[in-house]
Amino acid sequence: MEKTPVEVAGNAALVVVDVQKGFEDAFWGRRNNPDAERNIAALIDVWQQSGRPVVFVRHDSPAQSRSPLRVGYEGNDFKDVVEERRGKGAGPELLVRKSVNSAFYGEPDLDGWLKGAGVRQIVIAGIQTNMCNETTARMGGNLGYDVLFPLDAMHTFDLAGPFGWSATADELTRATAVSLHGGRFARVVSTEEVVAAAR
């Protein structure tokens, strides 16, 4: 398949999903892609320098839950790589709070904010690849956005499923990439490609 060059619109929004301290908890198991945070930082930096909009998404699990992302627990806080960059950009910034997988089902309304700003392209990075990132990408595609999915700017964890099946974090990442790209929900790309196109 011929590779299409990556183009980043002048007002493309970077959607940074759930980069929270709770994902460092042993609760989740073994993760993949140790370079995820470095690549997320690179994307935020180029977005902020160029004045493009950045959306920071935070997962607020119910306070009474056992989730490391629960409200009122330190795991709900953004990791330093994100927190130290919030509010530093030249362009517009939005904080979306959610309690489900899709950033489009949060407060305030992400779709309304993006469309109000005339944004038609979004770039998704963050945690977890096959959970909130994939769900947000699928919804974004369904809503008509051109979705870029830099696979090396995210990570996930090994997971057990039905029938005694399980999949490693890398296997889940590949499955997400094939499903999104092959199903035309999003274009799976690299951080390097997106950063080069955004500069």
Score class of each variant (00 low, 15 high):
Glu193Tyr: 00
Gln48His: 15
Pro150Asp: 02
Gly183Thr: 14
Ser190Gln: 08
Val46Asn: 00
Pro108Ala: 10
Thr4Gln: 14
His59Met: 07
His181Gln: 14
Val15Met: 08
Thr136Val: 11
Val81Arg: 03
Gly118Met: 06
Leu151Pro: 08
Arg30Cys: 09
Leu143Asn: 03
Gly144Asp: 02
Thr156Val: 05
Pro108Cys: 08
Phe157Trp: 09
Trp28Gly: 05
Asp35Met: 13
Gly161Glu: 12
Leu95Arg: 14
Val195Pro: 01
Ala42Trp: 02
Val46Ile: 11
Glu84Trp: 07
Leu143Glu: 02
Leu110Pro: 03
Ser166Pro: 04
Leu114Tyr: 02
Val71Gln: 12
Ser61Trp: 04
Ala196Tyr: 01
Gln64Ser: 15
Glu74Gln: 09
Arg85Ser: 02
Ser65Val: 03
Ala175Gly: 12
Leu148Thr: 02
His181Ser: 15
Asp111Trp: 05
Ala137Cys: 11
Glu24Gln: 10
Arg138Ile: 09
Leu94Ser: 09
Phe149Trp: 01
Gly140Tyr: 00
Leu114Phe: 04
Gly89Asp: 09
Ala177Ile: 06
Ile44Tyr: 01
Thr136Glu: 08
Ala177Cys: 05
Ser102Ile: 08
Val71His: 07
Asp111Glu: 15
Thr173Arg: 14
Leu14Asn: 02
Ser61Glu: 15
Asp152Thr: 12
Leu143Lys: 06
Tyr105Ala: 07
Ser102Met: 08
Gly10Tyr: 02
Ser50Tyr: 02
Val82Met: 07
Ala12Val: 01
Thr156Ala: 02
Lys115Asn: 01
Lys79Trp: 03
Glu24Val: 03
Arg174Ile: 13
Lys88Val: 11
Met131Leu: 14
